[in-house]
Design a protein around this nucleic acid. Sequence first.
DNA 1: ACAAAAGTGTTAAGAATACACCCATGT
DNA 2: ACATGGGTGTATTCTTAACACTTTTGT
Lengths: 223, 223
Amino acid sequence: MEYVYHAPTLTVDSVIFQLIDNKLQVLLINRTNEPFRGTWALPGGYNAAGDTTLQALERVMTTKVGTSVKAFPVVEQLYAFDTGARDPRGHAVSITYMCLINGLVPASSDATQQPTFFALDALPKLAFDHAAIIKFAHERLDTRVASTTAVYALLPKRFTLTHLQQAYEAIHGRQLDKCNFRKKFLSFDLLVATDEYAQEGAHRPAMLYRFKEQKLQPLLRDF
Amino acid sequence: MEYVYHAPTLTVDSVIFQLIDNKLQVLLINRTNEPFRGTWALPGGYNAAGDTTLQALERVMTTKVGTSVKAFPVVEQLYAFDTGARDPRGHAVSITYMCLINGLVPASSDATQQPTFFALDALPKLAFDHAAIIKFAHERLDTRVASTTAVYALLPKRFTLTHLQQAYEAIHGRQLDKCNFRKKFLSFDLLVATDEYAQEGAHRPAMLYRFKEQKLQPLLRDF
DNA sequence: ACAAAAGTGTTAAGAATACACCCATGT
DNA sequence: ACATGGGTGTATTCTTAACACTTTTGT
């Protein structure tokens, strides 16, 4: 049998989440090339032969976001999307990653790409099937913060219990009872109170907490 | 910039689960080609340009398992593995799928591949990183049967509550209390009792149940 | 004194767990 | 009669959920 194997185009796209103004936001860049030129899209790029998907992701991060993958405390592969024909010339498969971070200031090597964070409830029109990818990523994030300590990646080292609760509320999209939230989360015994307080207005200052371990751990019970 | 894009090799591998003798078993085939010739491996194959991963999976299923993907009530994409260098000539990315079925008798178009079900606790030496893929698939299956009605795909249309419990026990790998299991599962209101009984030995016959809906549904509470 | 957010207590409903028991069948 | 697995009841403990209350700050 005479048959020359030809591989489909392989790309990598990253969904970078960050909490800004107590809202869950995602990083988008403005496409400078066709197709979808001028439309907002997830930072992504080609995965060339010889590169692992993580290496391709690193290339995307350094060139289009201005940061190494290593700067993200939580990076998780999501799904291989192959519905959206990325390239009009043919079928493409995109491996997607979810990246969580706090305090990232993006800087593309190409300034016209203007990397910008958008709130999930105020997304612009998106290129390719990127709206579906973001939806998938949001659902995955929801299950991850429910079953692991993944929120730590979205918060600064020190934070108040109200910050923590607001993070959960922004991700889950619903209000939680303050007292019940605190009792439950503290019962996991993952936080330690620091001796510092946050003074943020005309009211009682809040105690600052930090995670005992800055790493992904399973939660005893789901949130 | 003069640059010709070259895509990595893309493959598809399937983890086919079935319950046999109250044990969770996975389908393996014996490799007829190098590398790993003569070693057991997951059914898999190349994903050629122009084919979606599901089309590539269909090709694998019809040629190496003797069944269409459509015969599997539950098919779920798992993860893109790119650690194992499938081909010694270069880097390869494998998209993996988990497929659940009941009563499958496999038949490869190439009889020397002898597709065979192996119990998860008695796997042979495996090619590539397939041991890691099976472990990943097992964990995913565990969360799926805990949060959805995915078990239905592993059971015949009619089954006893003991069969159902044994399925959960085989997947979770631990014993469950009969009374508590029944109360909880029946409280989901997903099963209906048929008017038939299963007579399986020198003891009281067991009532046969069926799922109201033969489809994947979320469970009210996790198992 | 008051507004605003921090932080706590209490109770009732619901779920999980452990364990003991009765029932219907073939031999 | 008895062994075997089918099928059920109940009490205890742990979680969840709702809601009301007190505390500490700046103005």
